[in-house]
Write a protein that binds this DNA or RNA. Structure first.
Length: 220
DNA sequence: AACCAGGACGTGA
DNA sequence: TCACGTCATGGT
């Protein structure tokens, strides 16, 4: 029987050797990615941009999200307060390229209202999950990249790659897969390091999937 | 020309 | 709980 923890740890090092640090999450203030700078984000505005991107990128190409974010930025609407003031048609037009603009426009306003009402700097995962439009993956992306909390992000690429490696199943429960990664990596890294490892690992998985699975459905 | 992109939600079984 | 349809635009 394969030991999931061994596979998870080995694969992390292999991907890191292959691609190097990725510098997620991209921020417009830094002209995109920022490899080996784990001090970001530093402002509420940057955290809001990350959470906005997390919603816009749901089942959507990141290139399209960049265009939508740029449109919002040009409207000066990349803060919770300013985005909330946009009328819905303007907001929908700005994010049109990212698809699902009817739902996502509503999701973004909910998100903005949450950012304004909440005074504490770090929300809980459960609080994020209560918001419409934020499921488990988006919540973890926000916790990990916007709020620097140690939650490993499980996406479809993770399912594909590690089902191919024989340690998860495609339709396995999200929490079950996440637990395998947490269980594997918790004993190896201190809590302070864990956040960085989870940030890099998810980014490396996406990078690897983009290069190897994009445009074809065969895999090696 | 089908298929996919850094998913989430509502519904009916 | 599970399977399936829906949401929408653009690139390959």
């Amino acid at each position: 029987m394969i030991n999931p923890s061994t596979i998870i740890i080995q694969t992390y090092h292999e991907l890191l050797d292959l691609y190097g640090p990725r510098g997620w999450w991209p921020l417009s203030d830094y002209n995109g990615y920022h490899p080996e700078n784990y001090e970001l984000p530093q402002t509420k505005k940057q955290r809001f941009e990350i959470c906005t991107g997390a919603i816009l990128t749901q089942n959507t190409n990141w290139k399209s999200v960049e265009i939508a974010l740029k449109n919002l930025s040009q409207l000066g609407a990349l803060t919770p307060e300013s985005l909330l003031k946009l009328d819905n048609e303007t907001l929908k037009t700005a994010i049109r390229r990212a698809g699902y603009y009817n739902q996502k426009s509503a999701y973004l306003k909910n998100l903005a209202a949450f950012f304004i009402e909440r005074d504490a700097p770090v929300p809980t995962r459960a609080e994020l999950l209560k918001l419409r439009g934020i499921g488990e993956e988006s919540a973890d992306s926000m916790m990990l990249y916007a709020f620097k909390q140690p939650f490993f992000v499980v996406d479809t690429y993770t399912r594909r790659i590690f089902s191919h490696l024989g340690i998860v199943e495609m339709k396995e429960r999200y929490s079950s897969i996440q637990n395998k990664f947490h269980t594997a990596l918790e004993p190896v890294y201190k809590e302070n390091e864990r956040m960085k490892i989870y940030q890099e690992y998810h980014a490396l998985i996406v990078e690897h999937a983009k290069r190897n699975f994009q445009g074809r459905k065969t895999e090696g």
